[in-house]
């Protein structure tokens, strides 16, 4: 870490330099770690679900998920063969100066290296010809400029099966919270076994078309089982989870009590004409690892 002088209106502002090659290294490592090591929150959620699951088939599947996670960690083998598109959230402190190249190229270089060296599947392709890009780039990168001189990177590989079971719907203000709930529960029901239940359901409410989708995705980064900081949203999450688990889909959609481990909601104000709702479903292989530079 070096401090570079930057002059602003005659004042010297200390800036922290970060070489982007460090960012490549970190991204490469996080791609591998996220795919090999299921988080403690997920392991605990599987245990809680197994204890309450009435379906013998469902319990058997939950046990296999634990065994699978243990094998993956032991052998450094991906938890799931769908090692996902590399979704990368980057929070850049505004007192940081990036050196040695541009950030986006560095992140993609890290993804390329992580997926190659880590024996991860390359899943990006041309939308029409379906020709595989061969290196799992481009990553899906979300940037945020924040205060301070830190740089936080979250790598969240996301599989196609659960991502396909996602949607954005622009409701009318008159539809209100009742329709939001109906949309979420109905959508989870329609998705059935496709997104690999038990799932975590990310719900983004408000903002606009694209913001609601990002809110839904960000909601999935929260530790599973942790409380929502907003008690009103916590109550909504509890109600949605209860309704979803009455559907009977269960592990893998083969019947049971645990269709979802959790519902995570993020909300922000929207236009007076709109009520955007996004639903982003996360399979049980909920993978995300982060580092702060």
């Amino acid at each position: 870490m070096a401090l570079a002088g930057l002059f602003f209106n005659g004042w010297e502002v200390p800036m922290r330099e970060i070489d982007v090659t460090r960012i490549s290294d970190v991204v490469a490592r996080l791609c591998m770690e996220a795919n090999y090591y299921l988080g403690e929150d997920m392991l605990a959620a599987i245990d809680r679900a197994a204890a309450g699951e009435e379906s013998p088939t469902g319990r058997g599947i939950l046990e296999q998920l634990k065994e699978n996670a243990a094998i993956a960690a032991r052998d450094r083998m991906p938890i799931c063969q769908d090692t996902g598109l590399a979704v990368v959230f980057v929070e850049v402190g505004q007192e940081v100066v990036l050196t040695g190249g541009d950030l986006e190229t560095a992140i993609n270089a890290g993804v390329r290296r992580g997926y190659e060296e880590g024996y991860l599947r390359k899943s990006t392709c041309h939308p029409f010809t379906r020709a595989n890009c061969g290196d799992n780039t481009p990553a899906i990168i979300h940037y945020r400029l924040v205060s301070g001189d830190g740089l936080r990177i979250i790598v969240a590989p996301k599989g196609g099966g659960s991502e396909n079971m996602s949607k954005v719907v622009m409701l009318k203000p008159a539809d209100g919270i009742a329709e939001v709930k109906r949309q979420v529960v109905e959508w989870v029901k329609q998705a059935g076994g496709n997104p690999c239940p038990p799932t975590t359901v990310g719900v983004g409410i408000g903002g606009n078309f694209e913001r609601s989708a990002i809110l839904a995705k960000e909601a999935l980064l929260r530790e599973v089982g942790s409380p929502n900081p907003d008690p009103e949203l916590q109550a909504l999450e509890d109600e949605l989870l209860e309704e979803i688990n009455k559907l009977g889909l269960g592990p893998q959609g083969l019947g049971g009590r645990t269709t979802s481990f959790a519902v995570h909601v993020k909300m922000q104000p929207c236009h007076i004409a709109s009520l955007p709702v996004a639903i982003n479903i996360q399979c049980h292989a909920a993978r995300h690892k982060e580092a702060t530079l």
């Binding site: 083998m77 769908d82 024996y119 997104p195």
Partner: peptide, 20 residues
């Protein structure tokens, strides 16, 4: 229906579960 991950050294195949 599967698209496996590449085999690490010494293994026949990488992770290989079913796709939707």
């Amino acid at each position: 229906f599967v698209g496996p991950t590449p085999p690490p050294p010494g293994r026949a195949i990488g992770a290989a579960g079913p796709t939707t």
